[in-house]
């Protein structure tokens, strides 16, 4: 780990001021940042410890939504009775990720801002445009079993590793940020970037901006939802493919369906075409297969990860069936029914 200076921010304005300088990182749970610093991938000159800021509450919003403080841990969020009762998709997705120890330390804001687990990004001995702009991409033409099949560029095929964000995308959550130019709200689906020709930028945060909260809208998706995560072992592994589905049904007619994919792109992946194609249709396997093809339209394999395209399609169909039947995937009993 490199040497750095450390400051404990006493308030949000101080944190934003400190965070606006170059080569500075905010320190929250640290579960990803400290690891990357040990690997010499992150080499900040200064850490701004934000753990004492008053962003550690879950609060009801007027109108029935819920505000998740940026510093609430992933565990406290998943086990919060309001989250569990009103947003079971989110609780399920969080509990599908990481380990209990990591969820006890990792925060909601940090979950959004965690970096890819691409092996080349993690290894400073290799080329990586995300870590070292202009150096190339070791994953393209390299070992790329875990890499993107959607929205990749010729400079980067990394994926965003979060489970939580996939659920937040399906729930149309909003990210509240504060910065040198004041406060703003970013829809979760527009928070993360595709790699394009600036793969070192993971999201649309501006310098000095700090995530303060995540807002969940007042919508009832407690009956028809699922988070289906497929990976190389049954627990404590990143998704090869994951699917978050929320649905509103009238009998067997779909009034609204939202589908977000994880593990397949630089951001949680949704498709307006796939979702509008389901609205007003019957909850049938044929329609689910059509939606799966629409959602994976344009998918491209990189060699080792070619299997992910068909895996994603089958996972989408299975997740839609689970949501329609009101039988969400258990994160304890891992059988996929």
């Amino acid at each position: 780990m490199n040497r750095f200076s450390y400051v404990r921010a006493a308030g949000v304005p101080e944190a934003v001021h400190e965070g606006s300088a170059k080569h500075v990182r905010f320190l929250a749970g640290g579960t990803n940042l400290i690891d990357l610093m040990k690997e010499n991938v992150e080499r900040p000159e200064r850490l701004v410890d934000i753990n004492r800021l008053p962003l550690n509450k879950i609060e009801d919003l007027e109108g029935g939504g819920l505000r998740l403080g940026a510093l609430v841990t992933n565990a406290d969020t998943a086990y919060d009775p309001r989250v569990d009762r009103r947003y079971p998709l989110l609780a399920s997705a969080i509990l599908a990720g990481a380990s209990p120890q990591l969820r006890n330390a990792a925060t909601n804001g940090g979950n959004l801002n965690q970096r890819t687990r691409c092996y080349y990004f993690y290894d400073p001995a290799t080329a990586c445009n995300k870590r070292d702009p202009g150096s190339g991409c070791g994953a393209i033409g390299g070992v790329n079993r875990i890499h993107a099949i959607l929205g990749a560029s010729d400079q980067c095929i990394a994926t965003h590793p979060s489970d939580m964000c996939v659920a937040l995308a399906a729930l149309d959550a909003e990210v509240r940020v504060t910065g040198p130019d004041g406060d703003r709200v970013i829809p979760l689906t527009e928070y993360h970037r595709l790699p394009g020709d600036e793969p070192w930028r993971d999201n649309y945060l501006r310098p000095g901006e700090l995530v303060t909260a995540i807002d969940l809208p007042a919508e009832d998706f407690t009956s028809h939802y699922t988070y289906l995560k497929l990976r190389d072992r049954l627990s404590y592994a990143f998704a090869l493919v994951s699917v978050a589905v929320v649905m509103r049904l009238d009998g067997d007619l779909i009034r609204e369906a939202r589908i977000a994919l994880g593990g397949v792109a630089h951001k949680p992946w949704r498709s307006p075409v796939a979702e509008s194609g389901l609205a007003g249709e019957r909850a049938s396997r044929a329609n689910f297969i059509a939606a799966a093809h629409a959602l994976t339209e344009g998918a491209v394999g990189q060699g080792d990860n070619d299997f992910k395209i068909e895996l994603a399609r089958r996972a989408i169909v299975r997740a839609l069936e689970q949501a329609a039947a009101g039988t969400p995937q258990s994160q304890t009993d891992k059988r996929v029914l």
Binding site: Y6, R8, L27, Q101, L102, A105
Partner: peptide
């Protein structure tokens, strides 16, 4: 998980915690 300890009764990986942040 070999480094697991309890902070305020909650288990965490002590290898990923900077001690200064838990004053």
């Amino acid at each position: 998980g070999a480094c697991t300890v309890l902070i305020e009764g909650k288990r965490i990986n002590s290898c990923l915690v900077l001690a200064v942040s838990r004053d």
